[in-house]
């Protein structure tokens, strides 16, 4: 290994030959160069270590949100104890999927925001609607610099009046809200199941907290069954409007799975979760 501070960690050229710039998808990859200064400034072209879906659903008195604990490096399970739902202030929780280094950058931005806010505010002023606007601006500005933060974010919590806020923001700075939200694979696998329970604000009134939690747990199971980049341990965030509380439970496990041969599972092929 090369121990030069500027080339630290790279295989030494004597043993392994010249460094292959193709590894970084650099646009001067064909140029035979080894000088560090000619290495171009790089923007994120693709995510490296990634977190998979975040899902969320509104119920009659709040929001339930979940995201698993895995960080994958391609098909490698790189991290297995990664919390991707983070509380911000007293009125919001943020679930982030996509690139983990960008997630950690956002985590730091939100931390700074919290600190800055606590300097001169008597009360907690980081409401969920302010936060989602801020994150939308951050994401949009970064995409406008052609250097996006490779994430999809779900913001859940309360606004200044204590009303529920549930918003989705993606790497292009597109934001939207809906009673059911999901990022990544969840958009394909979980959203149909979630919308079966809640498809409009009217349906929200009919869904209880227990049913909402059960629905989200079922979705996390389906995701673990079918999304190869998911994991059976996840964080479950329950937001309650009547008590204005936000609770994040870690290490919730996917329960009641059947991994038998298909022919031995009764009901295989007919609707089951």
């Amino acid at each position: 290994m090369n121990h030069d501070p500027f080339h630290w960690g790279r295989p030494s050229a004597d043993t392994y030959g010249e460094y292959n710039y193709n590894i970084a998808h650099a646009s001067n990859a064909d140029r035979s160069t080894s000088t560090n200064s000619e290495f171009p400034r790089m923007h994120t072209q693709q995510p490296m270590i990634t977190g998979t879906s975040v899902i969320a659903i509104k119920y009659n008195d709040g929001i339930v949100m979940a995201a698993d604990h895995m960080g994958s490096f391609g098909s490698l399970m790189k991290l297995d104890d990664l919390q991707r739902i983070i509380p911000v202030g007293k009125s919001a929780a943020v679930g982030i999927s996509g690139d983990i280094s960008d997630f950690q950058y956002l985590e730091r931005l939100l931390d700074d925001l919290e600190i800055e806010d606590s300097y001169d505010m008597e009360s907690d002023n980081l409401k969920a609607d302010y936060l989602s606007e801020y994150l939308t601006r951050v994401m949009y500005n970064r995409r406008s610099k052609m250097n996006p933060l490779w994430n999809a974010i779900i913001v859940a919590g309360f606004d200044g009046k204590g009303e529920l806020v549930l918003k989705h923001v993606d790497l292009l700075g597109v934001s939207y809200s809906s009673p059911t939200l999901a990022t990544g694979f969840g958009n394909h696998l979980a959203i149909p199941l979630l919308r079966k329970k809640v498809d409009s604000e009217e349906d929200v009134k009919k869904l209880s907290k227990e049913d909402a939690i059960q629905t989200v747990k079922d979705c996390m199971k389906v995701l673990f069954y079918r999304d190869a980049r998911s994991w059976n341990k996840y964080s479950l965030c329950v937001i309650e409007k009547s008590t204005q509380s936000i609770e994040i439970e870690k290490d919730v496990a996917v329960e009641g799975m059947r991994w038998d041969f298909a022919q031995h599972i009764t009901g295989y092929g007919i609707p089951q979760l």
């Binding site: 989705h168 597109v174 939207y176 809200s177 809906s178 958009n187 394909h188 498809d199 409009s200 604000e201």
Partner: peptide
């Protein structure tokens, strides 16, 4: 309605 590709992001945006 707001969409991306074949997905419906939201029914009321």
């Amino acid at each position: 309605r707001q969409t991306t590709g074949y997905s419906i992001n939201s029914r009321y945006e």
